[in-house]
């Protein structure tokens, strides 16, 4: 009972994992969303917490823009994106009056909201809570990791694209995890290869293999490659069909495999 009281609103959450990357635009939010869906397809209940306060993009991806967050006795009720309430989402996007409103905040204000997101959202029973972060290693990251520490998160999934420039930022992110005492579940290489819809030639727009090499170099697991699928970006843009469209995408098997590895990694720690 005491344990439950201590964990508060996160008491029903079995596993917490963070999605990190040093660089922006490598697909953290996309991978977070896809991972949530892949886990959901295996029958898990999943929550997504979007702590990217200056550029929240998950509400749009899941076509949940404009939905409102309600309050209940135990805190904020997250937004459910499917009818069976299998995926719930919390983002600053739901708290803005206009979608174009800029959140021009310095660190302390961002930290306060993150703390609130972690303590005051009534997630209920969840198998996985995926925390999507902004790029970098600054206020949001320090606050998130520090506030989650009492809840013993499972670890972090690092996302990179294959270029050297992006891999360089992930090296710094690895150092961040080490310094913060956060376990690295593994590295995902996103946007590996683009299949031309005209001639089916696969081009490595951002080259290939940088993420895998880095994982080897750093001695952390490599979780897999996710190809760049224009149909998927299309469905992401439109939002609506993403939940249905995603299983048809060439990225789905890659994500299903990654999700499996994450579920396997929960075994030794128990729940």
């Amino acid at each position: 009972m005491e344990e439950t009281g201590l964990r508060g609103n996160l008491a029903g959450v079995k596993h917490i994992l963070l999605v990190l990357s040093g660089k922006g635009g490598v697909g953290k939010s996309t991978v977070s969303t896809e991972l949530a869906l892949a886990l959901w397809h295996t029958g898990k209940k999943v929550g997504i917490l979007d702590v990217d306060l200056c550029g929240p993009s998950i509400p749009r991806m899941l076509k949940a823009q404009g939905k409102a967050v309600h309050q209940c006795d135990s805190g904020w009720v997250p937004v459910f994106v499917d009818q069976d309430k299998g995926i719930s989402l919390m983002s600053i996007g739901f708290l803005l009056e206009k979608p174009d409103d800029a959140v021009v905040w310095r660190g302390p204000k961002k930290n306060a909201l993150i703390k609130q997101f972690i303590s005051d959202v009534a997630w209920g029973e969840l198998d996985f809570l995926i925390v999507d972060t902004p790029p970098g290693t600054s206020d949001e990251h320090i606050s998130t990791v520090e506030s989650l520490r009492p809840y013993k998160p499972l670890g972090a999934v690092l996302v990179t694209t294959p270029q050297v420039v992006s891999v360089g930022d992930v090296r710094r992110e690895l150092t961040f995890c080490k310094k913060m005492g956060l376990r690295v579940i593994g590295i995902v290489e996103n946007m590996s290869g683009f299949v031309c819809p005209h001639c089916s030639e696969c081009t490595n727009i951002f080259s290939k293999g940088g993420g895998e090499e880095l994982a080897k170099h750093a001695g952390v697991p490599f979780l897999g490659y996710v190809p760049l699928d224009p149909h998927l970006t299309q469905s992401l843009e439109e939002g609506k069909d993403f939940i249905q469209e995603f299983p048809k995408s060439s990225a789905f098997p890659a994500l299903a495999y990654i999700a499996q590895q994450i579920m396997d990694s929960t075994a030794p720690q128990g729940s």
Binding site: C196, C199, T233, E237, E238
Partner: peptide
């Protein structure tokens, strides 16, 4: 837009919806 180095056809990787 992305110009395929093989067939020189342009495609939209990031569609402008």
């Amino acid at each position: 837009g992305f110009v395929c180095p093989k067939c020189k056809n342009e495609s939209q990787i990031f569609p402008l919806t």
